[in-house]
Simulated scan of single mutants.
Amino acid sequence: MEPVNIKRTTSTVKYSLIGMFLSVAIALGILSLTDFELYSFSFLFIPAGGLALGIIATIGYFYRIVNEGYKPSRQNYLMSLGMVLVTFLFIQYGDYRMSYVTKDHAINHQFKGDPISSYQDEDGKALTFYHYYAFKLKNSESSLLYHGREAIQADSFAGYNWFRWSLSFVGFLLGGIFPGWWLTRGITHCTACKQAYLTEYKLGDLSSGIVTEFYNVLVQEIESNNFKAFIDIVNRFDIFNNNESDIHEETYVINIAACPNCKHGFVIMKHYSRDEEDGTYRENDNKKIALSTEGSFAEQALSYVKAI
């Protein structure tokens, strides 16, 4: 059985708790200051508030995983859903505990008046957390009682309330898994163990024409474990070494990559093409080349990078 890295696990838990705390604090802080329910805010049926708070809750968790070179697993995504569920419930409970009613029967979140828990629903049941949200989701005929007298009446339709609540919840869930996708865009994962992302180090820049012309030679040097011959070709035709960086429309960045999990090595050739409008180079992921290395090739390459 693989040993558990206690330090890494503790650090990931810390990042997770910080993100969840920030999400709750931001939502309830805004609610207390402005009575604005950020968590239920939507724009054109896009649950913007839920998405934002879900992202805040899990971005630290995913950042820690990806920053250490590991690929988020199915278990990590399930964990993130659990995190946003807990965050969502804490925000809802915080809303309940912060809800107060003034003498003119207006609900506020600045602790003015009587707490909502001192009221009863139309059936005479004390407004616990559950009954409070049951009241909020009912139709316009629902009302609250205070010392036996009608005090507050809901003014929105039950179907709309349920839709709004569901949309907010879905926003939290989508926001919770979004950082896992966003932080891993454009990162090459290890095809050997399929559990981690590769840590890449730059060896040089070659024109697209040189890569095409010498491709078979480069592959042969990799397969024969001859890093010296490989890097000699890269250095000889490097566009920056030859002051040719401005004359090529298409280039390849040559990287050596190592897997932090299984230590397998790869040569990664990333293709870039010049944008006709602004002249900048943009990566073309569909033209990226990844070649597995054998023997000590990756070790020699990493030693070379560190010595530069």
Results as ranks from 00 to 15, higher is better:
E2V: 11
T9M: 13
S11R: 13
K14G: 12
Y15H: 12
S16R: 01
S16Y: 07
I18K: 02
G19E: 05
M20G: 07
M20Y: 02
F21C: 02
T34E: 08
L38C: 01
F41E: 06
I46S: 07
I46W: 06
P47Q: 07
A48Q: 04
G49K: 00
G50Y: 02
A57Y: 00
A57E: 04
T58I: 05
Y61Q: 06
Y61C: 01
Y61P: 02
I65Q: 00
I65S: 00
I65V: 06
Y70D: 06
L78S: 09
M79D: 10
S80V: 06
L81G: 08
G82A: 01
M83E: 05
T87D: 00
F88H: 09
F88C: 09
L89C: 10
I91N: 01
Q92K: 14
Y93C: 02
Y93H: 10
G94Y: 01
G94L: 02
D95R: 15
Y96P: 03
R97Y: 10
M98K: 11
M98S: 10
M98G: 06
M98W: 09
Y100R: 08
T102P: 02
K103S: 15
A106T: 12
I107K: 03
N108S: 07
Q110T: 12
F111W: 15
P115R: 07
P115Y: 01
P115G: 05
Y119F: 13
G124V: 06
G124S: 06
G124D: 00
K125C: 01
T128Y: 07
L137S: 04
K138N: 14
S140P: 03
E141D: 15
S142H: 08
S142V: 08
Y146C: 03
H147D: 11
G148L: 03
D155Q: 15
S156D: 14
F157E: 14
Y160M: 15
Y160G: 10
N161H: 11
N161S: 09
W162G: 08
R164W: 15
W165M: 11
S168P: 01
F169M: 09
V170W: 08
L173N: 08
G175K: 01
G176Q: 03
G176I: 04
P179I: 05
W181D: 11
W182F: 12
G186Q: 10
T188L: 13
C190V: 00
C193S: 05
Y197A: 01
L198A: 01
K202C: 10
L203C: 06
D205L: 12
S207A: 07
S208A: 13
I210M: 11
I210G: 02
V217C: 12
Q220M: 15
E221T: 11
I222C: 05
N226A: 09
A229N: 14
F230N: 00
N235L: 10
N241A: 09
N242I: 07
N243H: 14
Y252I: 05
V253K: 11
I254G: 04
I256D: 00
A257M: 04
A257V: 04
P260K: 04
N261E: 10
C262Q: 05
K263A: 12
K263N: 14
K263Y: 12
V267W: 04
V267I: 12
H271D: 05
H271E: 01
Y272A: 01
R282L: 12
D285A: 14
K288D: 08
A290P: 01
E294P: 02
G295V: 07
F297D: 00
A298P: 03
S303T: 15
S303E: 15
K306M: 13
